[in-house]
Design a protein around this nucleic acid. Structure first.
Lengths: 258, 258
DNA sequence: CGCCGACTTGACACCAATCAAGATAAGTGG
DNA sequence: CCACTTATCTTGATTGGTGTCAAGTCGGCG
């Protein structure tokens, strides 16, 4: 059990057009440095809480395996999923001594728990290490800004296209040879991530399918038919023509129409 | 001119409910530390570019006076304003050696320009200073997450209420005695910040006015009539009743629930 | 006074939230 | 294994929200 898994090539939120290089995740060396003060947490199943908004923050966490959802509830009670954390991501940085987000597993996961006090000592003792962590936080900051762009400017279909495109760079979820994307989340989580309702998320899939961009095999397994079309959709204006995306309709879908 | 101005009590984006304490801005000591390697830039007017998306990033910037808008253009050409920077805020952190956002003055401003190379040296030489900067970035990260909440869950009226409430804590803009708020931005900037169209921003003001929450004296000067009402609006559901604001339920929104 | 940009308002069409009702998949107990 | 319950997902209908075009108003400045 002292194997240390390979670091994934890119962070979850990175877009296709701006590939996120390895240095934006914590490097193997940095992770090893952190592991020396870590406690391993193993989770067998999804929906298990790791930390919660408002708790005193004595630990930060490093994802080693699996997917974690980072969320916060608005005062209205509405949940917003701020990000999905994948291996190499850091989470649980305190603000005023407390967590400001909640984190739950989405699937089985292995996570390293790091005492924040000792983290700080390490950072003070090794400024280069601290600088690397700083750059990691800056990177996460950029990812948050990209989500501001998405939520501020794109309609639901475009947001879904962005979400899908983000996943195509992660081999763990996308089987490139067969063009199969395995979504790690259900429609509820997806809706809370996109800032919409589950029904709208389902409708967005339906429309992408009607335009020949993807095909739903099951609700969690999507065949990707037209990456260029997805990118065009994402880049287009919010109020774009909906009718026929671009002229092509895959042979499998000719509706004799009505 | 070696006076060092008082640090504002709170950062721009902080909400009323979660007051942002002084330590989230750079402290006076930290700012002085930075000033030792800084070049002062003075801007007499708004709309002057400071740095632009894609440029090689050799400097970071510290706002001393005035308001700066941080923006990015989507591939569709649509501009999104990610944040407004106020005194004590840091901006221009590079990603991959380049700026990823653009910054322009909104009003007259004084800004300290810091060579990024020397900044890094300073951070390596003084880990405590670096840790303070890290916490500052973490705080900005939180602010970005709060914007994700706002954009993902709130309608235009609520976003405008959030925007207004954010400003009420800044004495530079809000004359508490006379309940007068002086907006530093025009409707275009406001719309790009809220993720909507200028027309919708105007309509949102009209509706807040029709509900007796605010009154427009000029397009940039707003009289605040009902702070509680604004907070209720912000906290409410996205699809809430608009008609009469004031048959309000006390904010003790206990989750009695069904 | 007249121009021009910023702002506002109206009209209209499209988007998306909500309620409601199936349809499908996943458990659960017999 | 099947019948049943349940959760998840999908689709339809309806209504309110909001982007867009267009027209009009206001204010500042020459």
């Amino acid at each position: 059990m002292n194997r240390w898994p390979e670091i994934r090539a890119r962070s979850f939120d990175g877009s296709i057009d701006r590939p996120v290089a390895l240095e934006n995740l914590l490097s193997r060396k940095e992770q090893e440095q952190l592991r020396s003060i870590a406690t391993v947490l193993e989770f067998n199943r999804g929906k298990t809480p790791i930390f919660s908004d408002g708790e005193e923050a004595r630990f930060v966490y490093l994802v080693d395996e699996g997917v974690i959802r980072i969320s916060r509830c608005a005062e209205s009670g509405q949940r917003q999923i701020l990000a999905f954390s994948v291996p190499g991501d850091l989470m649980g940085l305190p603000d005023g001594g407390r967590y400001v987000n909640s984190a739950e597993t989405v699937s089985a996961a292995r996570i390293y728990r790091l005492p924040w006090q000792r983290m700080q000592q390490m950072m003070l003792a090794d400024p280069q290490f601290q600088l690397n962590l700083l750059m990691k936080v800056v990177h996460d900051f950029r990812q948050a800004q990209m989500r501001i762009m998405t939520l501020g400017q794109q309609n639901i279909y475009q947001r879904l296209a962005s979400f899908i495109l983000d996943f195509l760079g992660i081999p763990e979820f996308y089987d490139e040879k067969r063009s199969l994307l395995k979504l790690p989340v259900n429609r509820f989580d997806l809706a809370d991530y996109l800032g919409t309702a589950p029904e709208s998320a389902a409708r967005a899939f339906a429309r992408l399918e009607s335009q020949g961009l993807v095909r739903r095999l099951t609700s969690r397994t999507i065949e990707i038919l037209d990456i260029d079309g997805l990118q065009l959709l994402r880049r287009g204006p919010r109020r774009g023509h909906s009718a026929e995306t671009h002229d092509r309709i895959p042979p499998s879908l000719q509706e004799h129409n009505a």
